[in-house]
């Protein structure tokens, strides 16, 4: 591997990084200057994501984590979030920052490069999201984490509500990589009145820790 060849995230915030780290040729921002107290928009695009497709999904355990039975359900264990999408398909998101190779099983496809991966966490997150989508992240009939698939700022997205509580609320979302710039601009614009700012990976880890993950 040539360390001078950089991989680039589809997301670039108009903020000065205060702390960075190199991982697998990605330049990862750990912290931005003047992050304030949130809510935060965090770029998780370098984190590994797999697509799993098989007619016998129940027999597959990505990283030892079971795939939930019903579409819309999620399992979050060992830093791996597994989202059941439909009868034959699940998404596997590695939230810890590790970059494991996909298992040899043919069911797996590495889709890290396919999508932009964002976290929107902190106070009044759902006041921001309701400006962008009619997806119901606070549906009382669902317990977090749960997956919704639908338009977010008019772009087809997969969105997982990881936490509903008002102070620590948070969602994770992915969509086609090409939409990254416009999606980020739309989210930041919607969040401006609530003090939304870009934040680095540390903010994400702190948030996960606060949630007890």
């Amino acid at each position: 591997m040539n360390p001078e060849i950089w991989r680039r995230s589809p997301v670039s915030f108009d903020r000065r990084p205060a702390q960075t780290e190199t991982r697998d040729n990605w330049m990862v921002v750990l912290k931005y200057e003047d992050e304030s107290e949130g809510p935060y928009l965090i770029d998780l695009s370098p984190r590994t994501r797999w697509d799993v497709q098989d007619s016998h999904l129940a027999e597959i355990r990505p990283g030892g984590v079971p795939i939930p039975d019903k579409p819309g359900q999620c399992t979050f264990q060992k830093g791996i979030l597994v989202n059941r999408m439909n009868r034959t398909q699940a998404a596997v998101w590695h939230l810890t920052g590790e970059t494991p190779e996909p298992p040899a099983h043919a069911a797996y496809t590495d889709v890290t490069e396919s999508t932009v991966f964002l976290a929107l966490v902190g106070r009044r997150v759902f006041a921001i999201t309701e400006k962008l989508t009619s997806l119901d992240f606070l549906d009382p009939a669902r317990s977090a984490p749960f997956l919704l698939q639908g338009p977010f700022s008019h772009v087809p997205c997969q969105v997982v509500t990881l936490e509903k509580s008002p102070d620590r609320a948070g969602i994770l979302l992915t969509c086609s990589r090409g939409y990254a710039r416009d999606l980020v601009a739309a989210i930041l614009d919607a969040g401006e009145e609530f003090g939304l700012r870009p934040a680095g990976q540390i903010a994400f880890h702190n948030w996960l820790e606060e949630l007890g993950y």
Partner: peptide, 13 residues
């Protein structure tokens, strides 16, 4: 609304 014209850009845009 907020006039966001959502379109895709390539990595070398």
């Amino acid at each position: 609304g907020s006039h966001h014209d959502m379109c895709k850009r390539t990595p070398v845009h």
